[in-house]
Every structure is written in C-alpha cells, then in structure tokens.
Amino acid sequence: MQLQDKHRIAVLSAYALALHGFESLLPTPIPWLRLGLANIITLVALVLYGFRTAMTVTLIRVVLASIFLGTFLGPSFMLSFSGGVASTAAMGLAYAAFEGLFGPVGLSLIGALFHNIAQLTLAYFLFIQRIEAVIFIAPVIILIGTLTGVANGAVSGLLIKKILQKDGENIQNDKAD
C-alpha cells in the first residue's frame, strides 16, 4: 500500500464518517429509518478505486463512528457493522461480476437491499426471534431502502462523474492488483 493509497483512504473515511455522524443527528420519524448517506462514499470508492478501498473505508467508518457515537460493540454497532460489510460486499460482487450492467443507482439499490437483509437477519437472531415481526417489517424497510438507495445512487453517480472530469487521469484503481 502506497502513501497515496493511505491518504486517499483517510480522506474517503473522513467524508464517510462526517456523513454517518450527520445522519445520526437527524431526527427521523421512525427509529429504524436511516438514509444511508455514508453509502455514497462507499459507492464512489468502489467505482473509482476498487473493492479493497471501499471495504477498508466502510470498516473504518463503521468502527470509528460507533466509537464517536458511543455505541461501539453495542447492538446498534453490530447491526451497522453487518449491514455495512454485507452491502459493500454485495456491491463489490455485483460490480465485478456484471461489469457495466449496473450503474451507480443499481449498485446502490443492491447495497441497500443487502444492508437491510443482513440487518434483518442479524436482528432476528440476536434480538427479536419472532419471524412474524420480521416478515411484517421487512417489506417496509426494503421499500424505504429502495427509495433512499435511488437517491444515494444518483448522488454517487454525479460525484463519480465530477471527480472523473476533474481528476480522471490521476485515479488509480486497485482492481488491477
């Protein structure tokens, strides 16, 4: 890992952390409604710099954010962690396996879907253990996730385009190695 990579990961993680922190301050009408703004950074990292960068940024963001918010190793940390890892892994797989098939919006939708699936599965095993409650809540969560996923994907798409226009030749994608 070169110095430049470290620098890049640090900057991306800082942006992701800021969004994550900002989002946790927003009052939401329903407690489990989250916008998933930090996923914008994960997606930009994935498309521009490759899977390794995206996963590193996600792990740094989830762990540091939970320490800052005081939820480290608590239930909401576990849900956040599983959701973050699952969504990044799913987006990375979809991006690598079907090249060019999905744009940022599609990848974001996949990320949101797997984020929700991972959280619901974990929540079921750890906290709820009532399948009817999970079935009851899952479609609502997935619908909200789909809507916020489109918005995040659109923002990511714009951001990726802007960065490529401005700095296209300097970007090294770690997909090669």
Binding site: H20, E23, S24, P31, W32, R34, L35, G36, A38, T71, P75, S76, L79, S80, G83, G84, H115, Q119, A123, F127, I128, R130, E132, A133, V134, F136, I137, I141
Partner: peptide, 14 residues
C-alpha cells in the same frame, strides 16, 4: 399471540 406486534424492533441503525 400477536398483541403489540410492531413494537418488536427498537434498534436498527445504519
């Protein structure tokens, strides 16, 4: 058996 069902979740965060 399904009284107060929607109270099942109280901590899911991103």
């Amino acid at each position: 058996k399904t009284e107060n069902l929607p109270k099942g979740l109280d901590a899911v965060t991103g």
